[in-house]
Structures are given as structure tokens and as C-alpha cells.
Design a protein around this nucleic acid. Structure first.
Length: 587
RNA sequence: GACCCCAUCGUCUAACGGUCAGGACUCCGGAUUUUCAUUCCGGCAACACGGGUUCGAUUCCCGUUGGGGUCGCCA
């Protein structure tokens, strides 16, 4: 029997169940949900059709929305980007073909489609760096193609979803520099963008599936199912739903029940993944998954498909831990009569030991890296380079990433998190900042150390500049700058350095230097250099003779910034005072 | 266990049948220097294994091993 015959008879003229307001939700880009995207009649759909290759091209009209953002110059849409996309997904025997063994290939819309991608975090915690990577990949793809980047909140878990998490995730994404064209905060034509606000829609779709015989009621209790799985395991079988209620056609009066969707029982589902290539899964392995729980709330695999369809998402890029969900989702698309998007499954980010990155490996949330003084440019750069490369280039600006990054060029193997490389990139980026830029970035970290940064005038950029080439992170910068901000009495003294460099003859030099500097009206590098050079010339000494004693006197330590950097950062008063104190110590 | 994914220096990666297997991080030397850092030069270091296919495999195929992921009325 060809199931879609029944489908067509139950769908009705509008293809929409009563009470569904989906048309209002999908003003454009997609046809109304529940209307088959595949062309012609159900009978035609059941017949064998040839594979088709979807063509996609950048939409110039959509590019303007990105141009509204001030940042980097947009690169030209690339003509070659349009070519060569593989067929989205090919399914062998979904509902209609399953029973006949026919090969079914859905026919994509012929409309030139604007790329629409999404990032759908669940607000149950902070933004994980894996999530950040996924978000970035989607974002770059959208930017290059002039498409839409949709942010959707997957808050169907009322227990764990928290508003403050959602807000924090949005802030973290913004910190990274990602900007979305549609989302819960900015709105958009496909809202609402929080799943908790779309429950009516999910229920309506589920009821429609039920009415069309593509889903069914299952009154097995979770306890019964647990027992079933336990028995299966005991017998050495794979634990899975035994389809016990699939063909019973249970009515609404069957007691507390969930709604399950019917998966095909035989055949093959094929995913043509942008990153992984061809993936085949035997349909017999697919469980009839619950789409509506007993309490009426929808489940993840269901809402994802409904939303992605409603929102016109045509490329889904996510972690490869979702690969096993994909065939089930594809069949839900088919049940909805919806076009299946292309998929790109990004490999996982692994911990340094090769296992899945977790808290025990250290920091896993984006916010923690921000707090440790990683700049967003470096994080963006590092995240993009994980699993992807462009020639021998290591440092990329956002604009360069938008131009060169492609999901299809991402490697298919997992990548380990390498803090050393991240810090190296961070240092490289810190070195690239203009003075005022670095000051602005470093200020919060200085304040976090408890330093008073107000009223420093030109000393502040001098202090921060002194560490621009000496810091791998902004926290490191702030900690190194400590001697600039504390009272003389608080200086910590490296006794070995003191013993080595603050000897009597050095004391005389320091004392003389202090006198001359005190008399110097111009506290700028050329003037200071002149003072030091003159002193050195008179004494017939080299800089090497003076630098270390000065450094120890000024900082208490044997290592630190250059002499003039210290002098400029400290200012005249403190410099002279510390030099005198150092001279006194040296006698 | 079943299913799915993956496999080049320690790490991130390049190579798209013929290369002295390239670059970057880390590490180790050296140069510059005012200590440290920066910068510049140099060095160590890899095709997991076994079968095919081929005149020729790191590249293609199969298997083994190893690693990762998924097996919920979580997302």
C-alpha cells in the first residue's frame, strides 16, 4: 500500500488542520507547512524519480541586510559558491516508497533560495565553545552568501531552561562578534524565536500527522518501556521501541498516551553531508520516536524539524553528535511534506587527551575565555581554524573568514583543544591593536585587579603599551602591570635580583639618575633618553650597567619592561622616589 | 554490545597517484637586545597496521586496530 494515498485523502484542500495558523507564520521563502514541497501528485511522488541536484546562488538582495552592520567590508558574492552543491538528501523508501521498495527522491523547489541558517542553543547553561564554533560556522556561511542567520532558543526543557542563561548566551555571541538577522531579541518574519512560545504550532502539526496516519498514539508507560529495554538488553538485543502500538490505531480515549511518529521499516536513508559526505542508515534501525509527550509537550527532534521548516532553514550546520538524529528528522520532514535542508555535521571539539571536551579538561565556556583575557578576534580566529585551513594562513580577520571559510572545506575528523595555540593567536592579536584600542580592552582587567586607573592621563597608555609585546592574555597583562599601580611599600622584592643588581656602585648611579630626572622638565622618551645617555657618557658606563639596577629599583624584580617604558608609565614623581629608595637599598 | 563518524609531526593542518611529505603552535638551539618579551634564523618531530587496485600509493577500495559519538516521553 502506498501510504501517501491515504495522506492525500486526509490532508484536505488546504493541507492544514483546523486551528493551524501556519500561513501567518511563514510569509515567504517557504511554502506553508504541511504542504508538500515535492511536486505533482502523491502518485507521482510514489513513482521512481531521478536524482536532482539543487542549485543555489547567493541572493544579492539579501546582502543588504548585512551591509547595515558597520564592520568589515563585505566581500563580493562568489559565483563559484553557487555551483557544486551536492543533492541535499536522498531517501530511499520513506513513507510511500518504503512498502514498495521504490527509490524516492524528493524534488526541491526550483525557486532561487536565499541561504537561511540558524543557531539554536538551549538556554540550560553557558555558551559552550563547541556551540560557539557551530554558531560561527553558520554565521560565516550566511555572511558569505548574503543569507539569513537565525537565532532560535530551544527552551523546551522547562526545568533546565533559564532566562538568565538565554541572556548570557546572547551576550556571549555578541561578544564574539556574531550578529544575527533574526532572533528572540530582534524579531523577524518567522517568529516567535523561542520554542516555548510555539507550543500550539507543534501540537497542531502533531495532530495533523496523527490525522494523516503518519503518527499514532502510544499508551505504553515509561516504566513499561524501561522494563522492555531491560529485557531486551538481558537477552542481548539492542534496546529499542518495539512498535507495540504502531498499528493498533489507538483513539484519544486510550488513557495517558504519547504521540509517536511512524518511521519507515525498511530501506535506506542517505544523507549527503557537506562535511562528512555520504552517510547511509538502514531504516529498520530507526525508532518510532515520541513527538508529543504524555503531558502534551513536544520533543526535541520534532520541534527542530517543525521550526527549521517553518523558518525556511535550508542548511543545517551542527555538531556531528546529531548525525544519528538526522535520518529521523529527515523522515519527519517527509511526513510534513517539507523540503529537507542540506546538512553539515561539524566534528566535535575534543579535549587535549582526545576525549570529548568537558569541564575536567578545564574551561569549556566562552565566557571563561573572555574572563581570562582572550580577545574575541583571537577566539574567532582559533575557532575557525579548528578543522579548517586556508593555505598557510594562520591569522584571519573576520572579513577574511567571511571571504574564505566554507563549511564544505571543514575537515571531518575531531580536533583537540590547544590552549597554547589559542594563546599564541591571542598574543598575536594583542600585538596588532592600536594603543587606544588596547587600553580600552585592558581597562576592565586592570580594574578587576583592583587598580585605580582614573586620572592617569598619558601614563595609562604607556603602562599598557609596556606589556603589549609581553602578554599572551589580558589577565597576564594586568597582573604584570601590578608594580605600576601599587604603593611603593607594597612592592614585592626579588631578593636575588636585589643582591645582584643593587650594589653600592649601582646605588650611586641610581642616585645621580634620580637627581637628573627630577630636574628634567619634559617627561617624554627623547628627553629621558638624553638624560640617561648623558649620565652614561659622563660615567663611561654602558646601558647594561644601569638598566638592571633601575629595573629592580622601580619594580622590585629583575624582569620587566624597558627602562623608558617603566619611567614613562610610572611618571616622574614615582620614578624618582623609587630610584632614590633603590639607591638607599644599594648602600 | 549495536549503529554512525573519524585516522599525516605531541597539537592544528597542507598534499587532491609520482613532493627531500609543506606551514603553524609547542619544545630545543642561535642572532639582535637593557632583563623579560618581541623580532629574525635554525633544529627535533608524522603518512596507525594489513591486504588489495595501479607502472607507482599518504592519497583509491576492503579489513584490522585505535579514538570519538549515539542508542530517553534530554536537548
Amino acid at each position: 500500500m502506498c501510504r501517501s494515498t491515504k495522506t492525500s485523502s486526509t490532508r484536505g484542500p488546504t493541507g492544514r488542520p483546523p486551528g493551524t495558523t501556519c500561513a501567518a507564520r511563514t510569509p515567504r521563502v517557504t511554502s506553508p507547512p504541511l504542504t508538500p514541497r515535492w511536486s505533482s501528485t502523491p502518485a507521482a511522488a510514489c513513482s521512481k524519480t531521478a536524482g536532482t541536484t539543487r542549485q543555489k546562488r547567493p541572493c544579492a538582495a539579501m546582502a543588504s541586510r548585512w551591509c547595515a552592520t558597520p564592520k568589515p567590508p563585505r566581500t563580493e558574492p562568489r559565483a563559484e559558491a553557487a555551483a557544486g552543491h551536492p543533492p541535499a538528501t536522498r531517501t530511499v523508501s520513506p513513507f510511500c516508497g518504503a512498502q514498495t521498495g521504490a527509490v524516492f527522491v524528493h524534488t526541491p523547489s526550483s525557486d532561487p533560495m536565499t541561504l537561511r541558517v540558524r543557531f539554536a542553543p538551549s538556554p540550560t547553561g553557558h555558551l559552550h565553545i563547541g556551540g560557539a564554533r557551530t554558531a560561527l560556522s553558520n554565521y560565516l556561511e550566511a555572511r558569505r552568501e548574503g543569507g539569513a542567520f537565525v537565532l532560535r532558543i530551544e527552551d523546551t526543557d522547562p526545568e533546565r531552561s533559564k532566562k538568565e542563561h538565554e541572556e548570557q548566551i546572547l551576550r556571549d555571541l555578541a561578544w564574539l562578534g556574531l550578529r544575527w538577522t533574526e532572533g528572540p531579541d530582534v524579531g523577524g518574519p518567522f517568529g516567535p524565536y523561542r520554542q516555548s512560545e510555539r507550543y500550539d504550532r507543534y501540537r497542531a502539526v502533531a495532530m495533523d500527522l496523527l490525522a494523516r496516519g503518519l503518527a499514532y498514539r502510544c499508551n505504553a508507560t515509561p516504566e513499561e518501556l524501561d522494563q522492555m529495554r531491560a529485557e531486551q538488553s538481558a537477552k542481548g538485543e539492542d534496546p529499542r521501541y518495539d512498535r507495540r502500538n504502531r498499528d493498533k490505531d489507538l483513539g484519544p480515549d486510550c488513557g495517558p498516551h504519547a504521540i509517536r511518529v511512524k518511521m519507515p521499516i525498511e530501506g535506506l536513508t542517505v544523507i549527503d553531508d557537506l562535511i562528512k559526505g555520504r552517510i547511509e542508515i538502514r531504516n529498520e534501525l530507526l525508532d518510532d520516536l515520541v513527538i508529543l509527550r504524555t503531558d502534551g509537550t513536544p520533543t526535541y527532534n520534532f520541534v527542530v524539524v517543525v521550526d527549521d521548516h517553518d523558518m525556511g532553514i535550508n542548511l543545517v550546520a551542527r555538531g556531528d553528535d546529531h548525525i544519528n538524529n538526522t535520518p529521523k528528522q529527515i523522515h519527519i520532514y517527509h511526513a510534513l511534506g517539507a523540503e529537507v535542508p542540506r546538512f553539515a555535521h561539524l566534528p566535535m571539539i575534543l579535549g587535549p587527551d582526545g576525549s570529548r571536551l568537558s569541564k575536567r579538561h578545564g574551561h569549556t565556556s566562552l565566557g571563561q575565555y573572555r574572563d581570562m583575557g582572550i580577545v574575541p578576534e583571537a577566539m574567532l580566529n582559533y575557532l575557525a581554524r579548528l578543522g579548517w585551513s586556508h593555505g598557510d594562513q594562520e591569522v584571519f580577520t573576520e572579513a577574511e573568514l567571511i571571504e574564505h571559510f566554507r563549511l564544505s572545506d571543514v575537515g571531518s575528523s575531531g580536533a583537540r583543544w590547544d590552549m597554547d595555540k589559542l594563546e599564541w593567536l591571542n598574543q598575536t592579536w594583542i600585538q596588532s591593536f592600536a594603543s587606544a584600542e588596547l587600553v580600552e580592552r585592558a581597562l576592565p582587567f586592570l580594574e578587576a585587579e583592583g587598580y585605580v586607573t582614573a586620572g592617569l592621563g598619558a601614563r595609562l597608555p604607556a603602562i599598557i603599551g609596556a606589556f603589549q609585546k609581553r602578554s599572551r592574555t589580558l589577565v597576564e597583562l594586568a597582573k604584570q602591570a601590578r608594580f605600576f599601580f601599587i604603593d611603593d611599600a607594597e612592592l614585592s622584592w626579588d631578593e636575588a635580583a636585589v643582591a645582584k643588581h643593587l650594589k653600592p656602585e649601582a646605588g650611586a648611579l641610581l642616585s645621580a639618575l634620580a637627581d637628573r630626572l627630577e630636574a628634567e622638565p619634559t617627561w617624554e622618551e627623547p628627553a629621558l633618553t638624553a638624560v640617561v645617555d648623558a649620565l652614561l657618557a659622563e660615567r663611561g658606563a654602558k646601558m647594561g650597567k644601569l638598566a638592571q639596577p633601575v629595573r629592580v629599583a622601580l619594580t622590585g624584580q629583575g624582569v620587566g619592561p624597558g627602562v623608558y617604558e617603566m619611567l614613562l608609565g610610572l611618571g616622574k614623581e614615582i620614578s624618582v622616589r623609587r630610584l632614590r629608595a633603590g639607591a638607599a637599598r644599594a648602600t
